[in-house]
Amino acid sequence: MQVLDEAHKQRKTGRFLFLTLTAENASGENLKQEVRKMGRAISKLFQYKKPAKNLLGYVRSTEITINKNGTYHQHMHVLLFVKPTYFKDSANYINQAEWSKLWQRAMKLDYQPIVNVEAVRSNKAKGKNSLIASAQETAKYQVKSKDILTNDQERDLQVVEDLEQGLAGSRQISYGGLFKEIRKQLQLEDVDAHLINVDDDKVKIDEMVREVVAKWDYQRKNYFV
Results as ranks from 00 to 15, higher is better:
68 K>Y: 00
34 E>P: 00
133 A>E: 10
11 R>H: 15
205 I>N: 10
32 K>R: 15
140 K>E: 13
53 K>D: 11
175 Y>T: 02
151 N>C: 00
186 L>K: 10
163 L>K: 07
47 Q>F: 00
43 S>Y: 09
202 K>I: 01
112 Q>Y: 06
181 E>R: 12
119 A>F: 03
91 A>Y: 06
142 Q>C: 11
134 S>R: 00
209 V>D: 04
112 Q>V: 15
1 M>A: 15
184 K>W: 05
166 G>K: 11
213 V>F: 01
99 W>D: 00
116 N>Y: 03
42 I>W: 01
112 Q>W: 01
27 S>G: 08
98 E>I: 07
220 R>A: 06
80 L>Y: 01
13 T>I: 05
85 T>R: 13
45 L>H: 05
25 N>E: 15
87 F>H: 07
217 D>H: 02
130 S>M: 02
27 S>I: 01
80 L>N: 01
69 N>G: 03
16 F>A: 08
194 H>L: 13
71 T>H: 14
42 I>E: 04
158 Q>S: 03
206 D>E: 15
207 E>P: 00
43 S>C: 06
44 K>P: 04
171 R>F: 15
67 N>V: 13
51 P>S: 00
89 D>C: 10
98 E>Q: 11
28 G>T: 02
22 T>P: 10
149 L>C: 03
136 Q>C: 11
111 Y>G: 02
133 A>Y: 07
68 K>H: 01
80 L>R: 04
128 K>E: 02
116 N>R: 05
213 V>R: 02
121 R>Q: 09
108 K>Y: 12
22 T>M: 11
108 K>L: 08
220 R>D: 04
91 A>P: 03
190 D>M: 11
14 G>V: 11
48 Y>V: 03
151 N>I: 02
178 L>F: 09
157 L>C: 14
58 Y>G: 01
187 Q>H: 09
99 W>N: 02
32 K>I: 04
127 G>C: 09
214 A>F: 04
21 L>V: 02
77 H>T: 10
8 H>L: 13
169 G>A: 09
164 E>Q: 14
202 K>D: 10
9 K>M: 14
136 Q>A: 10
173 I>K: 04
126 K>I: 08
72 Y>W: 09
77 H>W: 05
183 R>D: 11
165 Q>D: 10
155 R>I: 00
113 P>G: 07
40 R>M: 08
88 K>Y: 13
39 G>S: 13
126 K>F: 08
97 A>S: 07
11 R>K: 15
172 Q>G: 14
80 L>D: 04
172 Q>D: 12
168 A>T: 12
20 T>I: 14
190 D>K: 13
144 K>R: 09
26 A>H: 09
29 E>V: 08
87 F>S: 06
105 R>D: 14
150 T>N: 02
157 L>N: 13
183 R>S: 10
13 T>G: 13
